[in-house]
Design a protein around this nucleic acid. Structure first.
Lengths: 344, 344
DNA sequence: TTGTACGCGTTATCAA
DNA sequence: TTGATAACGCGTACAA
């Protein structure tokens, strides 16, 4: 391995009887070189399938035309859709992307960010892990000139560009909807309480509870984990108590849905008759679930797409207000899991 | 931007009153350097958060410690799970991964592969697009010394390492199962007929039909596309004809499930009473669908994990039989969508 | 034990 | 219009 007998400018130059410098200029369309030789050079380059050595030009230019995408997980419909948007925008702007997964761990996120100090990427697109609650690792790398754009999950104490959704309103609207459907013991299930998006959802949720569920229980935030069997237990505990059992749940964390549906099946709880559910999710299968799942659907593709263009703008020297916060609103998609079956 | 005032060996050397060469050796644990100075150097390096410039060392060593992962799509549970496996293995072996998405397009796959000629990656992990039916682009890059490992979707005329599942048996077993459940007009829905995995699934399917569905219709392979609305029409067409309508479908292509479920809802066809379904899929939500979806579950994580270790073995100079074909068997998970409700 | 010097493939500056 | 040369940061053979 590592023979990599790839064609280089030097070889092309020798074959053409030109100097390396001239060949380089010709390939880069420098007006210094005559059109005739430019053509000749390009032809030979194409013939030999020449591509400039990535490392050499990056070393020289101190730029990699690559952006890092740091996400907490990939088996989540939000992130896979967001990546599609990121990929599209990156391609439009001539950037490569490298994707790193933190698995929701702060330590891993830290390690990944620190590795990027070596100039491998020009900029960073990040959605922080659920454990991350401070920004020193990000500030450090930001200070050496690598711009950062947050998408979806941001960090409030950093004032770089952010592309997010309207989590506060969405939490509020979710409760409003459930209250409209006669729920009066609504509970919020979350995989994190420290994440800014969770906080906002919870704030919106609390405001909604105060307004719409006057006689309801107010302090009912249930924290889950990333482990499915653990969540199964937590949820079972929550739903087993027939007297205090919630009649409505707002779910923040797509994967929790499976556990809830399974527990309900296990305990014989009927959705939506006994329990109404609405979930923050981009699941394509929401309409096929039994019952079909009401969702607060985030504009995942759009968020990824916009965040990437913002970052590329900054990298390409296009004036960007890096304190800008773009908000792409989510959409409430009501399905069976959250509505009273009045007509039965 | 591009100030990148990053700490370099040169700066460390100046601060330490040493030469660049010595610092480099110290950092690489060269026995030429005394342990005392080695420690001193490393300490300062850590203090300044030094990381070697990726491009410089890669240029020097002609190796990038990076592997390309080329996949057709990311919003597919198989691929997102496979990436988790790839990521884990890559990290264990000290490799970075860069992910590229072909969107099932051969031209895009070609472009991506050609871009990799510039030494950006040491090896390639690929699952080909559904359009890809020849291997010149891959052979070219393989010839300049970049090893390729296929995972899941391979190309039969290349004899490099492959990690796949038992598609033939799975197709066969799917039919066998449906026939057992009294289906006698079984149809195969596929997003591709040229993909080797599709071919194998179809071969297994046909063999199964011949064996188990003696009086059934034999030539019923339906080709779908990547476009959801188009698929909706194709499937509607297939299911509208009440006389010749299949009573069992083997689905190859996870996303087709949604269309099938929607069409059935639209046409009032009852699953599984009137139509039984089994799908090649890794969908976590299979058990929550209405009705729950029977699947042929591929060992996605395992496939990604093993393929990566194989590639890293080859890159790290560990003897590898690059003609090896590792087969990780799929598992039939029977749920409601494919079984007769005998007890009703 | 440490320092010097060259080369990896590019690109940019300056000279011809 | 083209050529020569230096520089990017690192690793290593060789000299000291």
């Amino acid at each position: 391995m590592a023979i990599r007998s790839n064609i280089s400018i030097k070889i092309l130059a020798k074959k053409l009887g030109l100097s390396v410098g001239s060949v380089s200029k010709a390939l880069n369309n420098s007006p210094e070189i005559s059109i005739a030789t430019r053509e000749k050079v390009k032809e030979l380059a194409k013939q030999y399938n020449y591509t400039p050595n990535h490392f050499a030009s990056n070393l020289r230019n101190n730029t990699s035309k690559t952006i890092a995408v740091v996400i907490p997980q990939i088996s989540d419909s939000f992130f896979s859709l967001a990546i599609n948007g990121i990929e599209k925008a990156a391609q439009e702007r001539g950037y490569h992307i490298i994707i790193s997964i933190t698995n929701e761990l702060f330590t891993k996120e830290s390690i990944i960010i620190n590795e990027l100090h070596n100039g491998m990427v020009d900029g960073i697109l990040i959605s922080i892990s659920r454990e991350t609650n401070h920004s020193t690792h990000l500030k450090e790398i930001n200070e050496i000139g690598i711009p950062i754009v947050f998408f979806d999950r941001d960090l409030e104490d950093m004032d770089t560009a952010k592309v997010v959704t309207n989590d506060f309103e969405s939490g509020y609207n979710a409760v409003k909807h459930l209250a409209n459907e006669q729920c009066n013991n609504i509970c919020f299930l979350s995989v994190s309480e420290s994440l800014s998006i969770s906080k906002k959802r919870i704030e919106g949720f609390k405001k909604g509870v105060n307004e719409f569920v006057k006689n309801g229980i107010h302090n009912n935030i249930v924290k889950c984990s990333t482990d499915a069997t653990e969540n199964h237990l937590i949820i079972k505990n929550l739903l087993q108590d027939e007297i205090n059992r919630p009649d409505g749940i707002v779910v923040s964390g797509e994967h929790l849905t499976i556990s809830i549906y399974n527990v309900c099946k296990e305990l014989g709880i009927k959705i939506p008759e006994q329990l109404k559910i609405i979930c923050f999710s981009n699941l394509a299968y929401a309409s096929c679930l039994a019952p079909s799942l009401s969702t607060i659907t985030q504009p995942a593709f759009e968020i990824g797409y916009k965040a990437t263009h913002l970052l590329c703008d900054s990298l390409d020297g296009i004036a960007v207000d890096l304190k800008e916060k773009i908000i792409c609103p989510s959409v409430l998609e009501i399905r069976e899991s959250s509505i009273s079956k009045r007509h039965i």
